[in-house]
């Protein structure tokens, strides 16, 4: 039968081993992976300013981006590709809560400049390689064939 000492060894060795592997992989992800996948070279000052606004207003408290956030409002990863810049600017600069389909967004009344920064941020995120997310709807693929 397993002794307490052996159980302790199992815990210590497993933890140590898998922590090392995890740190190694994380190192690679941070050094090489993320910059490549997100095209960090295209991350202009406007993109960073857009990200600051994203953080400041907690857009993630209603929307998801890269599939992370809350499930109350549309996924925004590909919103630039889906809606284009003018539409997005109209949403963000609206003085009344944006709610064409009934559910209210916060009325941010962004300035033109702020809206542009956010658009740049959304464009940049939309161009990142997310290993196939969001997937193309099966049904649409089916119709095409």
């Amino acid at each position: 039968m397993l002794t307490k000492r052996q159980a302790l060894l199992f815990f210590l060795i497993g933890t140590f081993l898998f922590s090392i592997i995890f740190i190694g992989l994380s190192f690679d992800t941070v050094r090489r992976g993320i910059p490549e996948k997100t095209h960090e070279e295209n991350m202009t000052e406007a993109v960073v300013k857009g990200r600051v606004l994203w953080d400041k207003h907690n857009c993630m408290g209603c929307h998801t981006i890269m599939g992370e956030g809350a499930y109350y409002a549309p996924e925004l990863t590909k919103v630039y590709q889906r809606r284009g810049p003018e539409f997005i600017k109209a949403v963000l600069m609206s003085e009344k809560p944006w709610a064409p389909r009934g559910r209210k967004m916060v009325a941010y009344g962004f300035s033109e400049e702020e809206a542009n920064h956010m658009v740049e941020f959304l464009k940049w995120i939309g161009e990142a390689d997310l290993n196939g997310f969001p997937p193309e709807p099966t049904f649409k693929k089916y119709l095409k064939n």
């Binding site: 002794t3 199992f10 497993g14 898998f18 992800t29 993320i34």
Partner: peptide, 28 residues
């Protein structure tokens, strides 16, 4: 004794299991 086994299993699976959040978030 079994407590060690359980927390051993936790780290054995859970540390690298973090990867289930790295599928579609701009990671390799």
């Amino acid at each position: 004794k079994w407590l060690y086994v359980i927390v051993g299993l936790t780290f054995l699976s859970g540390i690298l299991g973090t990867g289930h959040h790295y599928y579609y978030t701009g990671t390799p």
